[in-house]
């Protein structure tokens, strides 16, 4: 590295305790080369970062999509339960409600299962989101970009 820098007339000079190294650029050509390397480094780094963020959002969208499906199932089941309960109330005086009661019992078992699945997923989403928030979404613009990206992935996946 040092030799490569010297080749382009970039020298290191000791400079006291506070600034141990000072770079002296001896030619305009060297300055241009240094700038090119710097820009390339920044570009590669930001691409890597973007790729990592994209893959994180994609992973998150997969989990979120599953949560959305479970949510739809919960609301659907809740509707079935309340409509069945309405039927039981209406039929209490006029007819046999045994089958409806059996139906409700089954739905309550399904509800328990859905709750366990949803809760586990909710915990996992919370952890993932906390990491995304603290690592990537450090300002409002990044949040807006994240929202847009997540929305578009969820729409493409048919979850939204």
């Amino acid at each position: 590295m040092k030799l490569w820098l010297r080749r382009y007339h970039i020298n290191f000079k000791p400079f006291g305790i506070i600034f141990p190294i000072i770079i002296t650029i001896k030619s305009f050509k060297a300055l241009l080369k240094l700038l090119t390397v710097g820009i390339l480094f920044v570009l590669i780094f930001s691409c890597k970062n973007k790729a990592s963020l994209d893959s994180t959002i994609n992973d998150f969208a997969n989990t979120e999509c599953r949560a959305m499906q479970l949510r739809i199932q919960r609301f659907k089941l809740a509707d079935n339960i309340r409509f069945t309960q309405d039927s039981i109330i209406q039929k209490t005086q006029s007819g046999d409600t045994l089958q409806l009661h059996e139906k409700i019992t089954k739905m309550y078992m399904e509800k328990e299962l859905l709750f366990i699945q949803s809760s586990r997923l909710a915990d996992s989403i919370k952890v993932q989101l906390d990491i995304i928030m603290s690592t990537y979404l450090t300002d409002k613009n990044k949040k807006l970009a994240f929202n847009r990206k997540l929305d578009s992935i969820l729409i493409i996946k048919g979850c939204k």
Partner: peptide, 17 residues
């Protein structure tokens, strides 16, 4: 105050602005 409510994401709702 501009913000996005992410609190319901974990329960399968999209965030709201």
């Amino acid at each position: 105050y501009q913000f996005t409510d992410y609190s319901q994401l974990r329960y399968g709702f999209a965030a709201r602005n």
